[in-house]
Design a protein around this nucleic acid. Structure first.
Lengths: 246, 246
DNA sequence: GTCTATAACGAGATAGAC
DNA sequence: GTCTATCTCGTTATAGAC
């Protein structure tokens, strides 16, 4: 009984994942807008109606691919971070950003799916939110740790932004000062901009040594959210005047 | 003679632009991947083959739309800048960035066309480069002016990035120091990240007062390329206060 | 010379009857 | 599940109108 059920469940999981694999292949070839349940079925030697036992609609298949992509990116970022969890905050920040970039270069179509132009007619359901938040939460953890240990630079926000900053911090980063929460949100968007520019071709004929450029740019951004190498504190020139320690 | 030619030319321009108008409508409805010459022709009451007198292929139509979008964005940015051309560099920077954001919000599908995920199977020809460069050149002009008049802060780049920085400056910004050229390229990508995050929905449930947030974030980025309000020169360090708990 | 229309090709998607 | 009749698409060849 349980073995039969287990076998069925296993088979279901296997079919589900080959459907997603084929869908990802089509994503790479034709783009998300042209993802067609029928084509997936044909390629798998199934009939289109059979797919509906696994995914009730094309949008549900898309949603599954999106969640998988967010999770794959999140896992790449988290495991890269785990290897440097004991190092200074700026090093951890740069490492995570580099992992994001590398994942994006290795999975350009999935990156386009989650961070690129919206798919026409598709509206992502709230079920994508947890997976979508993983990298942001990871970066927030780095900044939080830095804030708790050595203290991060706080760049005062202008009065007009104060209410939004307070609300944002209360909403998503209750243990961070409002200024830092704002800096973090903006920093994450900026990192995404660097990755997007490279991936979508805007750096063609502009930036050649993209890895070095990226490492430098995200370390500047990390610096901007207040992260430093503790041993370098006080050497950063006039950009950041933190208390000297050491 | 001239009138007949003029009339023909006028008619040609008019038909060309109604083709592009209709194509833009379909872009908004279905996305660039599904742009179809036949559908455009049908909607205009023409026959598909007639379109080939105006655009030799579907890709050429796409290219025309892309160039138009870049030019429309470039013009929006340039005319916004013209209104504040005599103000301090940071104000000019922020104004141009805000114009970019506003154009993007007003033309989300065209923004997605030029800065979003690549259209599967389409390769942009070099003819798009001049239009694509307009905003970048405008921003570069602001930084150049600041560099010439009050001087901009130069943040030294690490040794590993030095060759790339020199190459980049020589290539695209011969009148800027290498460090500043690098900072500018990175800044432009970061501004794009902020706009993209907002436009593509990553700020949903995160940032509410997006206009204020954006103004603040891009002014920080402008600061990062060395722009300041002249009256604040020499006070940069004061903006940043380290904080420590221990 | 400049345009539009008709027809067709090969490839693919789709809806529905069976 | 299968098969078929009918759509779509980009593109080209051709013929004729202005």
């Amino acid at each position: 009984m349980t073995t039969a059920q287990g076998a069925r469940a296993r088979a279901r999981i296997e079919v589900t994942s080959s459907i997603k694999d084929e869908a990802r292949r089509q994503l790479a070839a034709e783009g998300a807008a042209k993802l067609s349940l029928r084509a997936v079925a044909r390629e798998l030697g199934m009939v289109s109606s059979a797919l509906y036992r696994y995914f009730p609609s094309r949008d549900d298949l898309l949603t599954a691919l999106i969640i998988d992509a967010y999770d794959s990116l999140g896992e790449a970022a988290e495991s890269a971070h785990a290897a440097v969890a004991d190092t200074p905050s700026l090093r951890r920040w740069v490492t995570v950003c580099e992992a994001v970039r590398e994942w994006a270069l290795a999975h350009p179509h999935e990156y386009a799916l989650i961070y690129g132009s919206p798919v026409p007619g598709y509206k992502a359901p709230d079920t994508t939110v947890p997976a979508a938040s993983r990298v942001g939460l990871l970066l927030m953890g780095i900044v939080r740790d830095a804030h708790r240990s050595v203290g991060v630079a706080r760049i005062p926000v202008p009065a007009e932004l104060r209410p939004e900053a307070e609300r944002l911090a209360a909403d998503i980063a209750p243990d961070l000062p409002a200024e830092v929460a704002v800096a973090l949100a903006s920093a994450w968007a900026q990192v995404y901009g660097l990755v997007g520019f490279e991936l979508f071709g805007q750096f063609n004929r502009v930036i050649e040594d993209r890895e070095t450029f990226f490492r430098y740019a995200v370390s500047r951004i990390g610096h901007e959210v207040g992260l430093v190498f503790p041993e370098k504190e006080g050497q950063e020139g006039k950009e950041v005047k933190g208390e000297k320690e050491k």
